[in-house]
Structures are given as structure tokens and as C-alpha cells.
Design a protein around this nucleic acid. Structure first.
Lengths: 286, 286
DNA sequence: GAAAGTATCTGACTAAAGTCAGGTAATCTC
DNA sequence: GAGATTACCTGACTTTAGTCAGATACTTTC
């Protein structure tokens, strides 16, 4: 571990120093805060979501917006669906400023990699992808959300889509439990998008049933399922559950393997789930 | 190229955002400027060289140093060889502060990679090494230096060392030309250390001789030799030379291949270099 | 329809980070 | 040994990047 830490720190020192030089260049005369905000708004004009994403103080953001307005780069309009919120509308000058920022940024990167051969450039991009992919994995966090929330619904939608492709008998939205059925619902997210989910419903006092576990295809074989289950088990134990059960399907061998690896024991069929073919149970201790 | 640029920008956005979060943590209550300076001084107490490396304003640096002195972390002493310059001497508290910074930094990196498996961590470190290696290659610059300068001498020293290993007849420091023999001398550097060199001496009016071309083993096969020669050729042409010559040795097949690939034509022996076995020439045009 | 919550704005403030001009002492160059 | 250069210092200043405490208008929840 120490070796890896040292190498990462060395990389970080080198990279930040190298990139600092670049940053100065592509900003032109604009400040970093303004440039970043301008760029983010150009991709997503919703002020509220940009604020959340960049983690800015509302006062600070408000002043930055005022500065962009004074420069006639944007105007702020009322959000069509929520009168409290604002959306940024770019003026012609604003669009020009964004594209200028874009060009400068492209140019400074091009200057950076110019001495490299095409092959070296490709290797650089590949290595950066690998770094980013691994950092994204490291960023995956499991958190409880409301089963009716937008993020939970989007996970369940993808879950149903996938099962409909994999189950010979098919699977439809009607096979999903209603949000009210869940005692709690967990979503794994990598900080950008959800990459997995799982819910728990009460079967009988002290007995919970694991339902609708899903891992995004882009995040398979990275330990997301394992972490979702670990989190679910510990939350369930805290809530006083003493046993977890689940039913799964022959068409999901990776799920079956995971349950077996985590100590779930196969049990006789229970319940009336039409898709249930294999059944498992795990005792919980506090 | 556009694709690669976009991927690099995407990486940069993600990385800087991710790392910003880390930075807050390991600083403790110290400001970024102070912490960075403290760290740099702990590796190299020479104020002058740290100032050059970090590119700081002298007034700003002076104030930062005063702050570190006030906190009893360092004392400033006169540089033993230059009464104008200062070196930082760490107090016990200063050494403790550096090691504290070090520990925090290690910890925050460890927290970052904690969710990864050991294999994933190794892959992360490897990918970071690749990124850094390629960025370092991209940073290589060829610049003229005085043939008697410290950097030129250190290149020539390594050059002689290597030839003494590769030439059956041996090679010693006495085989090197004196600094005064060169019309000009070029060094390739990656921003950290020199990675190659080449010198030109005058054979006769309009005819220059390429001497002592060397590429550091750590930078072979990266196009450094090619760039050194391109730079030398254009400088020589600017100075009015119309022909370049060189002698090389059978024990250096990679050099011979490079000269041939760049259009140097083999010519009959000339001069009296005891190590000369193969001879090449290139006409120059302005 | 009242209460609670949300999205933004405003004013007042702070610390960090840096710039610039001018000064002193030491050293280098001729 | 004069003049230029270098390394650093000091004072005065600016910009950036925030924080915090309320105020206001709108929306959601009960």
C-alpha cells in the first residue's frame, strides 16, 4: 500500500504542477471561477443543478452570475417548472465566450501533446481513461434513498429492461414492486451516475427480502454487488432483522454465484414470485 | 487529434475536481501556499531554487517565509556560497510539521484508494506512471546551453561512461572534446533532468561536425535523438553551415540507423578520431 | 390555507494569493 | 573598482474565492 500511495502522490505533484501551467493559458482574462461556471452552464443551464454539482455557496454563485450578466454573457430567466429556480440563457457574446474558452482549452491541450507521436497520444489517452475509470470505481458510494425518488426509479427502470432481455419468460414494469413496498432502498453511485441498487421489503416480522438488486453493465465485476449487499445486511441488522431471504433466476448465474460466495444458503421455495427459481437465506446477527 | 484532446480534457476535469476534495483534507489549518512551500523546502532548502521551481513572486515568497519563521517552523540562514541567498533550516517543530503533512497526505491518498482491490490499486499506479511518463516525454525541450555549463558537463560525463562500457577499445574522459571546441551545444531536458545532448564543432569553413550525441537510457526510443538532430541541423543552417559530418562506431547500431533514417549519407573516412569507424555527411540548405 | 422547505439574492465580511515598485546588500563582469 | 546583476525584503495594493446572516419569493406538505 505504501508504495502505491507514494506513486500516486508523485503523480499528483507532477500532474498538478504541469496542468497549472496550462490552466493559466486557456482562461484568457477571465477568473477560474467565472470560466468554470460559464462552462458548466453551457452544458446544463439549470443554475440549481450546477450549484449542487460544483458545491458552491449560494451567495458566491449569485455574485458570479451577476458578473456574467454584467458582461452580457448570459441572462437569467425563471425556470419554466419552478418559479424559485433560474436558468441561464446565453447571449450571442456568451456563446462566443464559451466557444473561445473551448478553443483555447483545445489548443493548450494540443500544444501539450504536440511533441508526441500519434501512437504515444493514443497511449496517453488510454492511460488517462484507465486512471479515471479506477478513480471512479474508488468513488462508488452506497447510500440510502427513497424508493420513489427519481434516482431509484431510473435504476429500477434499467433493472426491468435488462431482465426483460435475459428472462426467457420476459419481465415487465408491472413485475416491479411499488415504491411503498420497500422498507429501505440503497443506490450505489460513482458521483456521476447511479451504478447499482437494491431494496429490502418486510416478509414477516424480523425477516426481510432482498429485491431488485441491479448493477449497471458499465460497473460489473468491480465489487459493486458485494458492497450493496454488505451495506444492506448491516442496515437490516441495525433495524432488527434476523434473517434475509431472496429469490433469483437461473438466467442470472453471476447473482447466484455472488450469493453463494457471501454465505447465503439455498432454501426451499417460498412466496409466489413467478420469476423465482432459486431461493436463498442468510441469518443476521447484531 | 480532436478525439485525444477531448479525452484529455475530460480526464483533466474529472481529475482536478476529484483531487480538489483531497487537498482540503491534508492541509490541516495551513494554507496551500505555506504547505507547498514547507514541503518543497524540506526536499531542497535552497530558497532561490525553490522560488525558481514554483515560479513565485519574490515578495510573496518573502512573506510566506516570514510566516513560517513566525510559526517557528524554519529559520533562514545565509547561503554558505552566496551571501545574497538564503537556505531554510528546519526547527524540530518544522520537521514535525513536514512529517505531519506527509502523514495526512498519505492518509488521504490511502482513503481515496481504500475501496479498490490490491490489483486495482496496482493498475491505478501503473496507469498513472504511464500518464506521467508520456507527459514527461511531451515536456522534453531542446535548448542551447554553454558547453562548459554544469548541465552539459553532466551529460558528457554520462556519455563517456556509457561509451566506456560499449566500446571494446574503451573510452575515457580524455576522449571528450574540451568545452571550447564547440560552436554550440544542445541539451534536451524533460523539465526535471537532462535526457540528451549533442554538440557541434567547426571542421572547416561551412562544414560542422556533430560530436558527442547522447540520449539518456531512460529516454531511449522516444524520439529524443531525432529532435536533437533536427534542432542542431536548423541551428547550423541558420549559422551558415552548408554541410554536417560525423563519425560513429560499429558498437552504436541505433545511432547508425538514426543517421541513415534521417538522410545522412555514408562517406569515406576523414579526420583522426581513434574511435571513428563509420562516417556520414548531410548537406544543409537555408 | 398555514407551515415548512427551497432557490436565490443582498450586504458585510475574511483569508488567501498574488502583483508591483522601490530598496539594500552581495556578487559578478568587465 | 565601477556598473550591472542577483537575491531578497518591505510596503501598498488588488483580485479571487469564499463564508455567513438574514431577506424574499415561490413551492410542497400537511
Amino acid at each position: 500500500m505504501e508504495q502505491v500511495t507514494g506513486r500516486i502522490r508523485e503523480f499528483n505533484r507532477y500532474y498538478t504542477q504541469r496542468i497549472g501551467v496550462l490552466t493559466d493559458h486557456y482562461l484568457g482574462q477571465r477568473s477560474l471561477g467565472e470560466a468554470r461556471l460559464l462552462y458548466e452552464l453551457s452544458r446544463d443551464p439549470d443554475v440549481r443543478s450546477v450549484r449542487a454539482r460544483l458545491g458552491l455557496d449560494s451567495g458566491y454563485l449569485s455574485r458570479l452570475l451577476r458578473a456574467l450578466e454584467r458582461q452580457d454573457l448570459i441572462t437569467l430567466e425563471r425556470h419554466p417548472e419552478d418559479g424559485r429556480a433560474r436558468i441561464a440563457v446565453f447571449t450571442a457574446a456568451g456563446r462566443a465566450a464559451v466557444s473561445d474558452l473551448d478553443t483555447r482549452s483545445d489548443e493548450s491541450v494540443a500544444t501539450l501533446v504536440d511533441p508526441l507521436t500519434p501512437d504515444q497520444r493514443r497511449r496517453l489517452a488510454d492511460a488517462m481513461d484507465e486512471v479515471q475509470r479506477l478513480l471512479r470505481i474508488a468513488a462508488i458510494e452506497v447510500q440510502p434513498v427513497a424508493a420513489g425518488s427519481a434516482v431509484a426509479r431510473s435504476c429500477l427502470h434499467e433493472y426491468a429492461e435488462e431482465l426483460s432481455r435475459r428472462f426467457p419468460e420476459g419481465y415487465g414494469p408491472d413485475d416491479l414492486l411499488p415504491a411503498s413496498a420497500f422498507a429501505f432502498f440503497l443506490v450505489a453511485s460513482d458521483g456521476v451516475a447511479p451504478v447499482g441498487c437494491v431494496g429490502l421489503r418486510v416478509l414477516s416480522p424480523g425477516v426481510g427480502e432482498i429485491k431488485h438488486m441491479w448493477v449497471s453493465p458499465s460497473a460489473r465485476r468491480l465489487g459493486v454487488g458485494r458492497r450493496l449487499l454488505a451495506s444492506l445486511e448491516s442496515s437490516a441488522a441495525d433495524l432488527g432483522f434476523t434473517e434475509l431471504r431472496l429469490s433469483t433466476h437461473e438466467a442470472l448465474p453471476e447473482a447466484i454465484a455472488l450469493y453463494q460466495a457471501l454465505g447465503y444458503a439455498e432454501i426451499p421455495p417460498y412466496g409466489d414470485d413467478v420469476h423465482g427459481q432459486r431461493f436463498f437465506s442468510l441469518p443476521l446477527f447484531r
